[in-house]
Structures are given as structure tokens and as C-alpha cells.
């Protein structure tokens, strides 16, 4: 059972993020929802590489290279890329939120009524 707990945590985090995006009216909270969901996915990506008792896949002169005893390094590189992409999206969303606040004087989604469905 214990082995499944981290995966359960990912699921819960992802659901919290999606819930925030769907149900909240404040656009800052929506952005936070996207960030939470994104980190749930990143956590899952890291968990994929996990190996019981494995050590970090870093090359150094004092240690032998034992591919069997190391965790899978590829997801670590992928998660870094994914974090960078998330950073770009988040920065853009926050800039948009600030501009929207300037136009409407509120972060409330329901009072932004320029678009119709």
C-alpha cells in the first residue's frame, strides 16, 4: 500500500488543481490551480524514474557507474524542461492577469463580460 501513496498524492494534487480551475472565479486562483496541476504532473514524471534503493544518476570519479543501481536519469531531464515551460506559461498568465486587473479593476472572472460564450 505504501508504494502507492505517492501516486495517490499526484492524483489528489491534480484533482485539486483542476477543481480550482473549474470552480474558482478569481483569476489568480485559477492560475494557482493550473500551477498545482502542473506540479502534480511533474511529480508523477519524477516518480516514473524511481527505483527502490537507487541512487542519483550523477557521474563522479569516486564512484563506480552502476546503471542497475541508479534511478532512470531521462525523466529528470524531462521534468526540468517541463518546469521551464511551466515557468513561461505562468509568467505569461500572470502578466495577463495584471493587465486584466488594469482594465477592469477586479480579479473577478464573472465581472469580465466582453465575450459571450
Amino acid at each position: 500500500m505504501d508504494a502507492y501513496l505517492p501516486y495517490l498524492l499526484c492524483l489528489v494534487l491534480f484533482c485539486i488543481g483542476i477543481y480550482a480551475v473549474i470552480s474558482k472565479r478569481n483569476i489568480i486562483k485559477i492560475i494557482i490551480g493550473v500551477i498545482i496541476a502542473e506540479y502534480a504532473v511533474n511529480l508523477f514524471l519524477i516518480l516514473v524514474s524511481y527505483k527502490a534503493g537507487g541512487r542519483s544518476p550523477i557521474f563522479s570519479q569516486t564512484q563506480e557507474i552502476l546503471p542497475e543501481a541508479m534511478v532512470d536519469p531521462l525523466p529528470h531531464a524531462l521534468v526540468l524542461t517541463s518546469i521551464v515551460i511551466g515557468l513561461a506559461t505562468t509568467a505569461f498568465l500572470i502578466a495577463l492577469a495584471v493587465r486584466l486587473y488594469g482594465k477592469y479593476g477586479t480579479f473577478d472572472n464573472s465581472r469580465m463580460r466582453e465575450l459571450r460564450g
Binding site: V34, V41, T89, L96, L100, Y104, M112, E114, L115
Partner: peptide, 20 residues
């Protein structure tokens, strides 16, 4: 403008979820 920012926000949130 108001329209553009709102449309872009909607697009970016939905696109972000799609990417996830």
C-alpha cells in the same frame, strides 16, 4: 484590449490544461 486579453486568458488556461 479588453476583448483580446480575456480571449487570450481563456485560451491560455485551456491550452495549459491541454498541455498537461
Amino acid at each position: 484590449g479588453k476583448r483580446e486579453l480575456e480571449a487570450s486568458f481563456k485560451y491560455a488556461i485551456m491550452g495549459g490544461i491541454a498541455s498537461l
